[in-house]
């Protein structure tokens, strides 16, 4: 291989976000919007699992609620022909994530599991990732948030309590992924479908959320991802998100099929 082509390859590597050409896993969530009824169980489960702080009314009024997952509600039409659509939005773990190019200190990067991860310790708080995120999935620790005793006894020891001044976002419950990988390793087997369930998917009463590895062709998400109802949020931005939504079926639906 000539030096020229080596340099060329290297430069091309640099243009590709992330270190990994092939991920060990490509963790993906499929959310069936036809099942989702917008009840909010996932939001609450995320608070419980991920030590999210409660910021209070005043801060909520400034749009600083620290919810890693939110349910957006879009309304079409006027009374009496009102149509409402719900969509749970969390960090989409984009494979071509705008936030990853933005961080000057590599506090956010793509890991070998296909996850967009945030290194809390490395974050200096330039806000660039959050500004670049088209999904507004990132949340900032505006203050040092403390829980009133004894509510702090509920803190999940598997998840860091974040410091003031750093950015955070949905992790697909990376602590559960780690634990499942460790367990699989202890049992000398490969990670299998269903080993990992993030808190939101676990709580979801309607079963709208399914989580798994897209690299595994037999996994539930791989099968669901082939659905003709499949779409991804703001796909036109070419961020290649890892969250796949399945279209809501409704009377005045658009009826524009991708396939």
């Amino acid at each position: 291989m000539s030096i020229f082509s080596k340099v060329k390859d290297r430069l091309e590597d640099l243009r590709r976000p992330g270190y990994f050409k092939k991920y060990d896993h490509k963790f993906t969530m499929v959310i069936d919007l036809d099942r989702c009824n917008g009840c909010g169980a996932c939001v609450s489960a995320c608070y419980a699992e991920n030590n999210l702080p409660v910021v209070g009314k005043e801060e909520c009024g400034k749009s600083r609620a620290l919810n890693w997952i939110r349910i957006e509600r879009y309304v079409e039409g006027e009374y009496p022909d009102v149509k409402v659509k719900f969509i749970p939005v969390m960090c989409q773990h984009c494979s071509k994530a705008p936030c990853e190019t933005a961080c000057p200190v590599y506090a956010t990067y793509h890991n070998q599991d296909g996850l967009n991860v945030q290194v809390y310790n490395r974050c200096v708080g330039t806000f660039t990732c959050a500004t670049y995120c088209p999904y507004d999935a990132r949340r900032f620790n505006w203050f040092t948030y403390k829980r009133e005793k004894p509510l702090d006894q509920q803190y999940n020891p598997d998840v860091t309590v974040r410091e003031m001044g750093i950015m955070e976002k949905g992790t697909f419950c990376i602590q559960r992924i780690r634990a499942a990988k460790d367990r699989a390793k202890d049992e000398k087997r490969a990670l299998k479908d269903g080993d990992v369930t993030p808190a939101c998917a676990q709580a979801c009463p309607t079963g709208a959320m399914v989580f798994g590895d897209l690299n595994d062709p037999e996994s539930r998400v791989s099968k669901l991802a082939k659905s003709p109802r499949r779409f991804r949020l703001l796909e036109e931005l070419n961020t290649d998100p890892s969250v796949i939504y399945l279209k809501r079926v409704m009377k005045d639906g658009r009826g524009t099929s991708e396939e």
Partner: peptide, 15 residues
């Protein structure tokens, strides 16, 4: 000392 929260920044408007 208190945090960036003393500014008027909020979730989409980080700058």
């Amino acid at each position: 000392y208190v945090g960036q929260g003393v500014s008027g920044l909020n979730v989409p408007v980080f700058w």
